[in-house]
Every structure is written in C-alpha cells, then in structure tokens.
Simulated assay, not measured.
Amino acid sequence: MSEPESPRFSSALRQSGRLPTARWCPSPNFGPRPDADDVSLVVVHNISLPPEQFGGSHIEDFFCNRLDTSAHPYFEEIGGMKVSSHLLIRRDGELLQFVSLRDRAWHAGRSVFCGREECNDYAVGIELEGADQIPYTEEQYRKLAEVTRDIMAAWPAITEDRIAGHSDIAPGRKTDPGPAFDWCYFRRLLAG
C-alpha cells in the first residue's frame, strides 16, 4: 500500500496538471476547459491498435496525429480522427501523459454523467492498453489505482462514486473498459 500523497504534491499536481511519474507525449488534440479548476470525474477507457493487439507506438502516434495509416487496414478508418486522452497505462504499467489534467482532452465524445453533459469539460480520461474481452494486467490495475488516488487528492470533488467507465457515460455508443475490467478489484486497490 502506498502512502497518500502530501498536500504539497497535490497542490503541485493541481497547478501543473502534469504527473511527474508519466512520460510526457504532448498531443495537439486538446483545448481549454471551461473552468480549469472544475475537474470532478475520472473516466476509464481502453484502447488497442490494431484492435486487440498490444505493444508498439500506434496508440501514441494516434493521439499525436502521426499514425501511419498504411501500417494496418484499420488505421485507414481512424486516420483522420483527432482524439486524445490525458493518460495511457500500458500493459506493463508504464504511464504516458498526452494532455495536462488542467486542459480538456478529447476522449469522451458525446457523453453525460449524473445529468451533466459534455464530460470532456470536467473529466480526466485514463486509457488502459486493452480490449473489452481481454483481462487487464496486475501492473495496470496497480498503476490505475495509484494515479487515481493522486488525482483524487489534487481534485477532491472526484470521489469514488465519480469514477466511471466510458460505457457508463456513453451507453449504447461505447463499451469500454468492457466486461474484462474488474471494478471490484480496482476499487479494493483504490481504497488501499
């Protein structure tokens, strides 16, 4: 069990929006939040490029608009999309950050949580390298719990009941993180 982050760490994270443990990979796909201090939701996603294949630089390239669309037939379908996420947790637990937590990443699309629309305006998007039906790794669960605790300490409006899957905020349109994601296990780790 890790110790809770210090108030100084939380304040620095809130000011900078950057996690010091993440590899910084700046994406051009972001904009200002309507209110940079209004961060009150964490959304858990999954992504794999090509679908259900792991490793390589394709996810990073996709979020940074440099995906080689000739590398796989699926990439031709998504090559023109402009999307991002704040964070990505790879299968081995490596953490990448694409957008400052103070800014609006383009991860949720049309969405609603507790009656409030446009979740990108107030949510932190965390992608897990994975697929709906493939179990996530222990390293991913541990890193997700650690990072989520850090974010919750910096933005206390994010409580355990304000952590959702993409499928929860865009039902019928999105299915991630999928049935392979063990919410009970994640919540136990989050509680420490």
Rank of each mutant, 00 (worst) to 15 (best):
I89Q: 10
D121C: 06
D103A: 13
D103H: 07
E129Y: 13
T137G: 07
G130Q: 04
I78C: 11
E129L: 07
G80H: 00
L101D: 03
L128N: 10
D132C: 11
C119I: 06
E146F: 13
E77F: 10
G109M: 02
Y122R: 04
E76Q: 15
R149I: 02
L96G: 06
E76F: 09
E117C: 02
T148K: 14
R110L: 09
Q133N: 14
D103Y: 05
G109I: 03
I134E: 03
C114A: 12
D103N: 11
A108C: 15
D92L: 02
Q97H: 15
K82Q: 09
A145V: 07
F75K: 13
K143N: 03
E117K: 02
D103L: 13
T148M: 06
R104H: 06
E118K: 06
Q97W: 08
L128G: 04
A108R: 00
D103M: 08
E127Q: 12
R142D: 08
G115S: 06
E77T: 13
R91H: 05
R90T: 13
Y141D: 01
E129V: 04
F75Q: 07
N120H: 07
S85V: 04
H86Y: 12
A145K: 12
Y141K: 03
S100N: 09
G79A: 15
M81V: 00
R102F: 01
A123V: 00
L87K: 10
H107V: 05
S85G: 15
Y122F: 15
L95C: 14
Q140C: 02
W106F: 12
V112A: 15
A105Q: 00
P135R: 01
L88G: 10
C114I: 00
H86N: 15
H86R: 11
R90Q: 12
R110W: 03
L87T: 06
I126V: 15
G115W: 07
Y136C: 02
E117D: 04
L95V: 14
C114E: 10
I89E: 05
H107C: 14
S85N: 14
R116N: 09
D132W: 01
I134M: 05
E139G: 01
L101C: 13
L96C: 14
L87S: 06
V112G: 05
F113G: 00
Y141R: 07
R104F: 11
A145Q: 10
G125F: 11
V147I: 15
H107N: 14
G115K: 01
G93A: 13
P135S: 08
E117L: 01
G115D: 11
G109A: 09
E118A: 14
G125E: 06
K143C: 05
S85Q: 07
Q140W: 13
L87R: 03
G80Q: 02
S85Y: 02
G109Q: 00
D121V: 01
V112P: 00
Y122T: 05
N120F: 01
L95Q: 10
N120Y: 08
V83E: 11
Y136W: 05
R116G: 00
L87P: 09
E146H: 14
E139S: 10
